[in-house]
Amino acid sequence: MTEFWHRAGPVLTMILLLVALWYAAAVALNAAWAKDKAARANMSLSFSELVADTMSQEKPLLPAPHQVVKEIYNTTVLKKITSKRSLIWHGWITLSATLLGFAFGTALGILLAIGIVYSRAMDMSVMPWVITSQTIPILAVAPMIIVVLNAVGVSGLLPKAIISMYLSFFPIVVGMVKGLRAPDQMQLDQMRTWNAGGATTFWKLRLPRSMPYLFASLKIGIAASLVGAIVGELPTGAVAGLGARLLAGSYYGQTIQIWSALICAAVLAAGLVALIGLIERITLRKMGMLQ
């Protein structure tokens, strides 16, 4: 128990502090509008009235946390999942594109990494470009992919998944190449002394050794996939998905809606990363790489 508090205590304190800061900022930012409104009505506000007003505006500059929580509750629990106003529905649309793209990106990334590790020519030709591409803001390509694919009649899930795939692909290639190359010369020589072939070395040594690297890059990859899916929802004009909620919210100044979509995206990202972390722990423990 003390161990738990030792670890969680500081984090919980920080979170409480952040929520308090959020409330304070909400009061500070929304006060101008509240005063303005009161002045037009020829009223003067007492401090407590002012605070109450800053936390109950319809389009505040910064909604108070409880307003966002209420909005999330309204749009998840109280709405039917099939409803276009249900956050779960929008979240699912984004999630499905994320997962589809992530799956493709992971598969392609691992295949390319294997090619790079086993072919000198591929290593020298492709690897510098993969590394360079990490320094390029690939996300900027997103709108073009959406629109071009739309023009040839592909729309909906697939274009977004392609962006997600593209974003998760590069970190996975880089991490997997590092992982497959992680066995040291002594371990490789050991395999040679047993006269193990390329395939055996791959399955018994390189692949197991690369697992920690793979999981580390999977976590980066899934977070990137989600960002890709959200940004991919922008150019189609606010149709569906969390990105669309963000865009629609910003068109109409619906700040509470923006924040609830944002929190939902954050929860989704945290959940996905945590899920991979869980799989990582189980896998590594089974392989004896973790106590």
Partner: peptide
């Protein structure tokens, strides 16, 4: 502070912060 902020920092670094853009 370190034990409080590091986990939060790691958590936030994985979030789609770009979504803050409209705000």
């Amino acid at each position: 502070l370190k034990r409080g902020l590091l986990p939060i920092g790691n958590f936030v670094a994985a979030l789609p912060i770009i979504g803050m853009a409209p705000i």
